[in-house]
Amino acid sequence: MRIVTILISGALLVGCCTNVTQDPSQGGLAGGVCGLTTGAYDQRIDEREARLAQVQGERYVAVQRQEDLKVNDAQSRRELSNMKSQVSRLQGQISSVTVSTTNKKGQKAELSQRANNLQAELNRLQGQPPVSQDYERRKAELEDEIANLWTIVNTL
């Protein structure tokens, strides 16, 4: 007799499913029985598990993207550091070249002045009558020194 009572009660409750919500938080006992017998609970569980799997997949993609961004950030920081080092080395080289250029300009001006002085002495000697062999020797020495100085000036 109990079985019959249970079956009749179940049939009555299932019959009541048409007017009862299948939301387990709102349906009460009738909604619970209705949800179990119609499979609504299982369907809600499946939907929520599917949504959970989707959210977990999105989270995995987001975590991977974050890791990729961290790697790219670290690489960019290394490249930036390398570029800063290169700029620093180039600035040092520029300073060195600037100093060297300034020194060479000074040397060139000094050598040029010496060459002009020698040329003036040579012009003075040429304006005088040759008196001795010393004159010709000194003239040849001055011409050689002038040529050497111009070679040095042009290589600077």
Rank of each mutant, 00 (worst) to 15 (best):
N148E: 11
N19T: 14
T38L: 12
R138W: 04
D134V: 04
C17P: 00
L142K: 06
N123T: 13
P130L: 12
Q22N: 14
Q64F: 02
R114H: 05
V99P: 01
A50R: 15
S112C: 02
R51H: 08
E136V: 10
R124N: 13
L7K: 15
K104S: 12
N82F: 04
K105T: 10
A74D: 00
A74G: 06
K105G: 10
A115P: 05
R59N: 14
K139I: 04
Q126M: 12
I6K: 15
N116H: 13
S96R: 13
Y60K: 15
N148Y: 02
I94M: 12
T5G: 11
Q75L: 15
Q22A: 11
L52A: 13
Q64R: 04
L156H: 03
L69E: 12
A120T: 15
K105S: 14
A53K: 15
I152Y: 04
Y135K: 10
A50Q: 13
T101C: 05
G39D: 03
L13S: 02
D23T: 09
R65A: 15
G35M: 06
N148Q: 13
N72L: 15
D144E: 09
Y41D: 10
G27Q: 03
L69F: 08
G27H: 05
S112F: 04
R114D: 01
V97I: 09
I6C: 13
K105W: 06
V71Y: 01
L142W: 02
Y60G: 09
D46Y: 02
T102H: 10
G32H: 00
S76R: 10
T102E: 14
L80C: 01
